[in-house]
Every structure is written in C-alpha cells, then in structure tokens.
Amino acid sequence: MVQSRALETEGTVVTIKREERILNLLSALLAASTPLPFAEIRGRVSGYDDHASREAIEKRFDRDKSDLRKLGVPIEYIAEDEYGGSGYRVQKELYFLDEIRFTMEEGIVLAALQRAAETGAAVGEGLRSALGKIGVDSPLSEPLREWAGEQQLLDPRLPPDNRSEMNVLAALAEALAGRRPVRFSYYTLRTGTVSERTVEPWGIGYFHGNWYLVGRDRDKSEERVFRTSRIGGEVQPQAAEDYEIPADFNLRDCVGVPPWRYRDGPAETVTIRFAPDIAWMIEDNLQSGQSFEAAPDGSGILRLEVTEPAALIPFVAQYGPDAEILGPAAIRDRIHRHLLEVISRCES
C-alpha cells in the first residue's frame, strides 16, 4: 500500500509531521548513491511534495537541514561530483559510526556506566545517547547481566550524588573544547553567598570524588578553582571568542592541592613522624614536593612544604598518638593547642 502523505481533500491540506518529514529527507539522502539535487527532493520526498510554493519548500528544506546537522548528520552540497552531478549528500563514511568491538571487561565498564546513567533521570543525556550508540555492536547487557561478574563488579557514581552536576560538567567540557567563556552562578562556601561568575575554562579535574573547573575569572582577572557541585542552575556559554590557555598551565598544580598549600607565599618545611602501622600508607601516597624517610622499625618521617600551617593540623591530629609533628616549634605549639581544645570541649 502506497501511503499518501499530503492529502488534499476539499481544499484542506493535511500536512505530515515534521519529524516524519525530516526522517524521510534523511532516508532519501542516505539511500541516494549520487548527490541529490533540490529539484529531486521537492515533489518526490514525502513532506516536500505538497502544493506549497517553491520558496516555502526551500525554506522548509533549509530548516530541516539545520536540524539534521544538530543531530550530527554531515550534510554537504556538492557543486559537481566526478560524474558531473550536483546536489546534497550525506557522506556515509562520516555519518555511520564504525563498528566498535569491546572486550568483556570494557563491556562491563560500559554496562556499569549505563546503569549509573539509568538511575538518574537528569544524568547527562549526552552520556546516555553516547552509550546507546557505541553499544550497538556489543552483546546486550541483558545477557551480560546473566554473566557471573557483571552485577558484582563496579558501581561508579556519576558524579557523586548530584544528578544535575553531570550536565554542568558536560556544558563546561563543551565550552572548553570550543574555547568559549562561560557564565554561571557560584556558591562560595567561605562567605556563604552566591554570585555570578564569568570564567574562561582552562581545565576540568577530578579529585577525591569531586569535580573542579579551573579557569580565569574575568571579573577578578585571576586564575580560580571552582568546585562544580557548587555551580547552581545552568552554565551559559558566552559568544565564541578564543582565549588563550597559558602554555605553562598544569591542571595538577590547581586540583588536588592539599589545603596546607592553598595559599601562595613562602613555605616552611614541616617534619612529621608516623608510627609503623600507618607510616607505609603515608609513604604510599606521597605527593610532589614531599619526602619520606623510613626507619628500620617501620616508622617514618615525612617532610613537606607548608604555606598554611593551620590546614595541616587536622591532617596530623586525626592520627592521634600515631603522628607527631617534630618541627618547627610554632607548628608543634599549634597542634598542642588543638589537642587541648579537643580535651576541654570533651570535659566542659
């Protein structure tokens, strides 16, 4: 049965749905082996075959092309191909996703991401559609689920507990890729206030369960680090305008910096002794600029540079008698006071 799309009955035109028309246009372009001239689209492709004026149909065609491009469809106009033909074409090599074969283990990671994406309705739609596409050649997760390990293996949380954060991150990453400044409202923990920021994104980092944006804050004319969970509402990309990311910019200098190095300025060296039961963990997690000297009994001494001594105290205090600040004396005094406060709070 040939279905008639534009039914003209007694002067009224029943137009077909726009989605349907666009799918027909895409079908015609994908099925054509040579470029398709507009003349062959108009009057032939369903949705372009009604009695509207040429201009109206041309406008319709332009709008539909732009929608298809938004979906990632590479439509181009060929002025003259090797056989002298001209018209519109979708290059299939550019349109069709190549076959991707994942290993079982890669499949497990993807299945875990899929599950994480399912649990949050608002969790980046981009992630979900990406997974759908690249998963087309993989064994479906239905049978995979039955495979012994799949359910047990991995439970990523994307990102921690905050479902809209993935969308914030996606928008920031897109701005970073296109070198577009962004505008957003930001909650500052220290002051408890929300303010509008305009930032040139330099990098996005993940550290200890949190995501951070590093960039130049335009109003402050300074490099700043923002925790993305404190970005509220939408991230608005600003007009595209290239900005420079400094050549010597290194994400690791800004994200994952211990709090006792937050402040710029002169650093002093602090030495801390750790008891054998925990010394190996400290040695194992050394950061740049720290050194560790192990003793035969399993204990060890950590040396680190500190610009903000107050922030070092909680780190050391948590270990109780298993950690001791050896020097300098002023910082020993600090932890001494800190511990006295704990005791007095417990006794009051």
């Binding site: 990632g72 069709f96 991401l113 981009g126 996606a170 990453a173 890729a177 995501w211």
Partner: peptide, 24 residues
C-alpha cells in the same frame, strides 16, 4: 537499510563519555 548504523557521536556525547570515563 538506510538506518543500519547509528550516527557518529556528537561532540556533546563524546565529551560526556570522556568525563564519565575519567570518573571511573
């Protein structure tokens, strides 16, 4: 036949995946 393969990933999709993998 014309819809035998998905469209390649858009920039948005590719970046979302990149971020998610970085988190894992």
């Amino acid at each position: 036949e014309q819809f035998r393969r998905p469209v390649r990933l858009t920039l948005k999709e590719a970046l979302a995946l990149e971020l998610a993998l970085t988190g894992v």
